[in-house]
Design a protein around this nucleic acid. Sequence first.
DNA 1: ACAAAAGTGTTTTTCTTACACCCATGA
DNA 2: TCATGGGTGTAAGAAAAACACTTTTGT
Lengths: 230, 230
Amino acid sequence: MKAYDQQSRLLVAVDCIIFGFKEGKLNLLLIRRDFEPRRGEWSLMGGFLKEDESLDDAAARVLKELTGLTEVYLEQFRAFGEVNRDEAERTVSVGYYALVEQPVVDKQLSRDYAAHWVSVDDIPPLVFDHREMVAAALRRLRHRATHEPVGFELLPEKFTITQLQALYEGIFGTSIDAGNFRRRLRKMDYLERLAEKDTSGSRKGAWYYQFKSERYAAAKSEGSDFLLKP
Amino acid sequence: MKAYDQQSRLLVAVDCIIFGFKEGKLNLLLIRRDFEPRRGEWSLMGGFLKEDESLDDAAARVLKELTGLTEVYLEQFRAFGEVNRDEAERTVSVGYYALVEQPVVDKQLSRDYAAHWVSVDDIPPLVFDHREMVAAALRRLRHRATHEPVGFELLPEKFTITQLQALYEGIFGTSIDAGNFRRRLRKMDYLERLAEKDTSGSRKGAWYYQFKSERYAAAKSEGSDFLLKP
DNA sequence: ACAAAAGTGTTTTTCTTACACCCATGA
DNA sequence: TCATGGGTGTAAGAAAAACACTTTTGT
């Protein structure tokens, strides 16, 4: 059984699947590897776990190094441990997915990392098992987005219902009935309609809304379930 | 960024939360640690990842060492990576939960490991962060059991509706309307009623049923969703 | 014949779905 | 005034919940 001596220590990494949303498309932030092996190929943003940091801390650090962002939604979804998944050395990697506001990231992105957004339905070949990691992250995101109000993390603080609908259509790759979608949202009293309109998309203008997390927490603790599916 | 040299290698473990079901109770298989630190205290069954095995393989190996079982339902649910979670040495642990037929395990259980079943609503103090791991596993089990037909893994191949209801009541700690529960099951044509009855529980006798995984796969691929909640 | 588990039916209410419709406004 | 996205209403039907009811059989 378990005994501490004589056990093999090995590398533990975290890899981040960074999701963004822009112009109706769900996107993924990739980098080109700047070290061997497979220098120059497309890869997820990752890094090795340090002695003095937790997995969550490591993921947040890695994300900060690439995007400069610190207050992002970040959730572990799965550990990947096939023996030969990293060809250089045995490495166990823990996958995290992040939800960021793409326009905000675009401003902060340092050019050095050669980071680029790609649409989730047009992903280039990736190193190692990163493709599989993306697929798993996407499944998890779809699931989370229907059962928890995490989609909002991909939108600016103020957003319109139409934007939210486009987001969900982007996440699921389907189209949604606008009337029914709105009605479901109307019942969520943790969505506050602001006294302000977005006039960029139409003549009439669309009301801005805001997600109130405190109110959601209250609603949840009283047993109400979030559910928003295509 | 990532670079392979000069990185700290560390211990990676897997820990198994083993669920069983008996007499209306959802149970957990625990052992007493037989090595330092915390020898003799209650713990989950775990082991270190070896150089030449995947995480899934390691979990299966650990499970086999304790229960002798090989064909069990086993699913990773989360990695635990707090810096001081294991007081002896920095260890990242990947949590798996297993669903086993308790009566079968009882027969095979080697006395050496000092393994014992405890009810999930009466868990003794556990070492390290094992309590938290159990809580996370239980949340995952509840979720999976409502959306996928995994509950059957805890029952014998042939089971009655009443047993299945008791199982779900045990998993969720609630009571369920028998009429409505049965009706939902009647619609699942991947549940086959056998020509045999269980007469141990009543005069009348209850039909045995069997879960047909091939038929379920077919139904699923045609878009039908499993849903069974309290 | 009756107790007790197994199993069925029926009514009520609630939620989805599909889709028709109205609104506001800049060009 | 009309095209366009924004937003509301509603009728039909499906599904969930509550609960009364029947069936079977050993004692």
